[in-house]
Amino acid sequence: MTQRTRNWLLLAPAGTWFLVMLIVPLTVVLIYSFGERATAGGYSPAFTFEQYANLPARWAAFKNTMVLAPVGTLAALLIAYPVAYFLAVRVSPKWKTILLVLVIVPFWTSILIRSYAWIFLLGGRGIPALLEWIGIEGVRLINTPFSVLIGIIYGYLPLMVFPIYVNLERLDKRLLEASSDLGAKPWRTFIQITLPMSIPGIATGCMLVFILLMGEFLIPALLGGGKVFFVGNALVDLFLQSRNWPYGSAVAVTLVVVMLITVTIYMRLIKRLGAHREDVSLM
């Protein structure tokens, strides 16, 4: 058996799987998005842009996603950065690994159970009951944009901490020493050295969180109570409740396209920032 044949045989199962379970289904979604809804639900063949023309009917879902995904990403970044900095720069090597693992572990456990925990905490008998006990009454937390935001931060914080930590960890600590030896105050060292050097980590973290948030369903479903819904919730509604497959397909295609465009623009921006940094370091 030649090496060529062997490689083909080794790749065959994975290739078949990718073809049948990824390429064919995604193509079907693309084709369906130009079709019409059959009377009993499902799909009837056609070539029309009607589904795409109808997209504004689900504008609220897109708007919520395009507002809460960036806001959630930014909030996660602001909370995660100091933790990553603390772990990378301030903690002794002995504790580093264990503390880092403690940050990451929640991310790999069930997001369903973790969001459920917040229903429990933010619901009527959780934090609002505690607030009532100290005299603040009538606070409603669950099923608001605030509760969805908390869920987002809680769910994706670990994913933001990790890449920033890796970046800061690799940063040459001598640069920081040099800066303080040359008389820079700590905040100035941070603004002029640490922060610019950690842009790649920030960029990776933000992109990971943002991509996952764009397709989020569970957090708004559980903590938004039907009032704060994302594109993901609209998709579940269209496919599983109203069985409007062509329209649902058009929404799904639009979601992926919006995501790709945002990520491409974002990468360009980051590259420009990165190039700028290179210039500075050359001087």
Partner: peptide
Amino acid sequence: FDALIYISVMIPGIVIGIATLIGLVTI
């Protein structure tokens, strides 16, 4: 293959779910 791996990681789980549902039902 690199592209396929990238796509299956990038595309939101919900879109994978939908695509599999209507793809398989069609087949």
